[in-house]
């Protein structure tokens, strides 16, 4: 079955004809050409595909596009303000929080969800929160450092 699915992505209404079985991540990458959201595992474990749906971080490889019909979706492409990086992105750059960068969009989207409910997380809280985000380059220490720095910058401290 083909259905027309529209949703609000990064503040813009978009739509596309897709199959019932089309995943949200496929809809974003192939129909909307927003290729910042990555597919690392496709088995719900790695978190490279994390986006926000109605304000909450979710794995877009494990949600159907039709399930997000009418939702507010934000992806890594919507985080920066034009050419100006978001403080969380800036923190990843400053702290060498990425190596190949494949996991980074998911890390940033996941971190932004954490900071929303916990603006001043401890290092342990950051590490626990990252349970669902894998970095194949294993740069976890600097990712944690980046998130702590990003959270601090966002608090304006």
């Amino acid at each position: 079955m083909t259905v027309n699915v529209s949703m609000n992505v990064n503040g813009k209404t978009v739509s596309a004809d897709v199959e019932d079985r089309t995943l949200l991540v496929t809809y974003l990458r192939e129909n909307q050409r927003l290729t910042g959201t990555h597919v690392g595992c496709d088995t719900s474990q790695c978190g490279a595909c994390v986006v926000h749906v109605n304000g909450k971080s979710i794995k877009s490889c494990t949600m159907l596009a039709v399930q997000a019909a009418g939702a507010e979706v934000s992806t890594i492409e919507g985080v920066a303000n034009g050419d100006e990086l978001h403080p969380m992105q800036e923190a990843f750059r400053d702290n060498h929080g990425l190596q190949c960068g494949f996991c980074t969009p998911g890390m940033v989207m996941s971190a932004l969800d954490l900071v929303k409910t916990n603006p001043d997380p401890s290092e342990t809280e950051v590490r626990e929160w990252l349970e669902g985000n894998l970095c194949r380059c294993t740069g976890y220490h600097n990712i944690v450092k980046s998130i702590l720095a990003g959270a601090k910058a966002m608090r304006g401290a």
Partner: peptide
Amino acid sequence: IGDPQVRNR
């Protein structure tokens, strides 16, 4: 259970 994104869904 699992991780934050699993718990959100």
